[in-house]
Design a protein around this nucleic acid. Structure first.
Lengths: 111, 111
DNA sequence: ATAACAATTGAACAATTGTTCATATGATGG
DNA sequence: CCATCATATGAACAATTGTTCAATTGTTAT
């Protein structure tokens, strides 16, 4: 039923709404940024820890996190000097999971 | 359980797999391309019909469809001179729906 | 106040990408 | 075979975007 509702909304989607959606997808559409999302999806993680785990510069991680936070894909919680990031809600995890399933699907014979 | 499995995989995600996922998200991350996906998601639609409905050039629509088809986000079915495009599977619709819900969510007080 | 640690920000550059225009391919009917 | 319709492709340009380096802000402890 949730799918049916979405199908109806989809028919009447405005350009603004499409752009809003696209913006979110685009943020997940960079490998580095996606890995950052995945890294702080399991448990709240500090910027430095993310950078270390993924072997990325602090600056780069912070830049990406700012974009992700602005889009409410992740949320920031300051705890002393450190800022812990985590997934903003369950939609994101669900979306990533669904895409993982899509990738895992068997290829057709004609491609 | 599907979520739990995905969560486990997430911990051990490789760089290649992250890039593969990101590529898919990036394709949905352009407003024009996303509208094309939405346009042929409800029912199989010919290239010309999509272009007309969205008021885009045939060339542009075709270029985007080629990328979407290569990523198996949409599938192509030739019927005479026309080629009808439709969503490749249910994952895509589910993903778009989930993102629509994410957008529809009430904002927090502090942003 | 100062030092040290953690994270953020701004500017600049290289690389990627969306769009357009022109041309080509494939299918159908005369 | 030729003309026409429908889609696809290639090259080129403008615009966006990821990354780096340097400098800055915020927080805690001495």
């Amino acid at each position: 039923m949730a799918l049916r509702t979405a199908a109806i909304e989809r028919l009447a989607i405005t350009d603004d709404r499409a752009s809003e959606l696209a913006d979110l997808f685009r943020l997940l559409g960079d490998a580095t940024r996606l890995k950052i999302v995945l890294a702080c999806m399991d448990a709240p993680t500090a910027v430095g820890a993310i950078a270390e785990r993924l072997k990325l510069s602090l600056s780069l991680v912070s830049h990406h996190l700012r974009l992700l936070r602005a889009a409410r894909i992740v949320r920031a919680d300051r705890q002393g000097k450190q800022v812990f990031y985590s997934a903003a809600d369950d939609h994101i995890s669900g979306i990533v999971s669904a895409m993982l399933e899509h990738v895992a699907e068997p290829r057709g014979v004609d491609d």
